[in-house]
Design a protein around this nucleic acid. Structure first.
Lengths: 344, 344
DNA sequence: GTGAAAGCGCTAACAC
DNA sequence: GTGTTAGCGCTTTCAC
């Protein structure tokens, strides 16, 4: 079972440098009370043998590992890449390595991944949990010395969090559509077990009621978040006796499904149907006509999460903090007056 | 410095169960020679205290960590997500956790990440190196007990590798364009320090020569691989005295740049210009008209890499193996006869 | 300033 | 079958 390791240890460096193990340790860790001459000798020996400290052994003594984890619910979502990149760029100058794991939106796999990270004694965790209501999630989060929730709401976990203000962007989008004359607007969004979708649903009903437009449950779909789900939901909504004249997709996967569905039906944008995407992607950025979008700064999200985590690691007892980042609606050319008005 | 860890140890479980530490270890690791009654007692105690083994301590003894690393050159490339997912799905049933890290195509950051993984004594590494020619890369790879290269060529590393047969798909694409009557075809591809681009360049010149069409260096661009690079290269190629009538983009980022450039110039596809993308993405899949594409099975790539790695871990001395996976050209509707012929 | 030695949590000989 | 014990490589008292 035990696999051999041809690893250079402190002991060998010590022998090479002609000093004791503890002196090597001190010299290598920039501690005081080492003569410069000795320090040089140690450094030379260490370099010569290409010594690499064993993190496992060190962390057994110190309790720290210099690594933090990122668990994302869906790695195939390109948005996450921007977040991971920004987090990495914040953490790595501070000496932390970022380890990413993917739950594929499966709460039980996610639990396993968290356990794997926890057993590796990572110094912290940034997590976009698949299901905020999963049994034991708060405890699993609390197992970490430091944890930051990524646009998730798990009150019992008492963790720091970075949240997007989905309400503002979506409200502006709805206002824009209503201003154009739309009275039946559909929202296709993801599972209510994630904060983003929950807020969108709430916002949708609030705004529709306030703006005095159709506010029917049939026009607001909350499903899983795959492309296929989006396709299916859009199809059903368009088959309603009174179909909507505008559709908002709550995330990029659903938007891809929406896009495919209207393409397959031969609908023109925006003449036959107005559409709005939440999240900027390659598709929304490059399409002609330009597509209306509710954007947010994902790099800022990742950066803020990483910074919150670092602060928490430094100061474990501080009260949990939330950071709320804006979303912005950007009108482009995928919305227009509703078809009935256009015909008139 | 030392951060306290409120961790349940074997010792405490042993006390709780009223047995010795080693018995607990045996019981928990499904080893023989433990009475069922005792095993049950241990399991109960372990559960009651919610004992979690310390991977660092264990790995210090066994030399294994149960974790493997994946280093990608660009996490913002959605293709990698499919690979990572497939690799994860192969590894996790076998008890391995996959840790992903992103080099952002920066060879020195990549070296750091590899060091971080190596110091954590990961059992293996799957890597899509940013620069095949980076100094010391082969040594860094050899530092790992097991390593698999992902579509990269680093002969000195003597590692296993999973490669895509870029030649076949691209050759078929070129043949298709030439059959349509194109005589000036441009290739926009990435840095020659990665196998994929190198093969494409070679294939391009080989095929153009064989097919007796224009084969000028000015039509073959090898740059970095960002969207902006693609945009820039395409612009330059289209500004040539004799511009191409068809353009092939060597990856999805470059394709996005290509797409943006022709959109900004108001060129119609395929009437004004024929285009082919390497790699299927949201954009190529959803666009109207459907876009010609050179596809490959990314999940298979990830799966094969993971399997190769597992085999290597089990059998460290085996001779290195390569697996070559196909690419397929799929003609859709973004290629047509060249503009001159269409006008005729 | 430097070395000797303890011990982090665990597994694997080796006793019994 | 079960307990005792010796380290894995490292940091950190504590002597000197």
């Amino acid at each position: 079972m035990a696999r051999p390791r041809k690893t250079v240890t402190l002991k060998e460096v010590a022998r090479e440098a002609g000093v004791s193990i503890s002196t090597v340790s001190r010299a290598l860790n920039d501690q005081p009370f080492v003569r410069d001459e000795v320090r040089d000798r140690v450094l030379t020996a260490s370099k010569a043998l290409s010594y690499r400290p064993d993190v496992a052994a060190r962390s057994m003594r110190t309790g720290t590992t210099g690594a933090v984890g990122l668990v994302v619910s869906d790695i195939s979502n390109p948005l996450f890449a921007a977040i991971a990149k920004a987090a990495d760029e914040t953490l790595s100058p501070r000496g932390y390595a970022l380890m990413i794991a993917n739950s594929s939106n499966d709460a039980s796999h996610e639990a396993e991944l968290m356990r794997a990270f926890q057993q590796r004694r990572l110094d912290g965790l940034i997590i976009a949990a698949a299901d905020e209501g999963a049994a034991g999630l708060a405890e699993r989060i609390a197992d970490f010395q430091a944890a930051v929730l990524l646009d998730r709401d798990v009150p019992e976990a008492q963790a720091d969090s970075v949240l997007s203000d989905h309400r503002t962007g979506l409200t502006d989008a709805l206002q824009h559509l209503v201003d154009l004359g739309h009275e039946r607007i559909a929202l296709i969004t993801g599972t209510a077990s994630q904060r983003g979708s929950r807020v969108r649903i709430q916002t949708y009903f609030d705004a529709c009621r306030r703006l005095k437009v159709a506010c029917e449950p049939a026009l607001c779909r909350s499903e899983q978040m795959t492309v296929d789900d989006g396709y299916q939901s859009v199809s059903e909504v368009l088959d309603l006796p009174e179909p909507p004249t505008a559709i908002i997709a709550g995330n990029n996967q659903l938007f891809a499904g929406l896009f495919a569905a209207i393409r397959d039906r031969g609908l023109r944008i925006p003449e036959d149907l107005s559409i709005v995407a939440c999240e900027e992607t390659e598709l929304t950025a490059l399409h002609r006509p330009p597509l209306d979008v509710v954007r947010r700064d994902l790099a800022e999200l990742g950066r803020a999460a990483a910074e919150l985590l670092l602060e928490r690691i430094d100061e474990p007892t501080r009260a949990p903090r939330q950071i709320l980042l804006p979303t912005v609606f950007e009108a482009r050319a995928s919305s227009d007056r509703p078809p009935a008005e256009l015909a008139a």
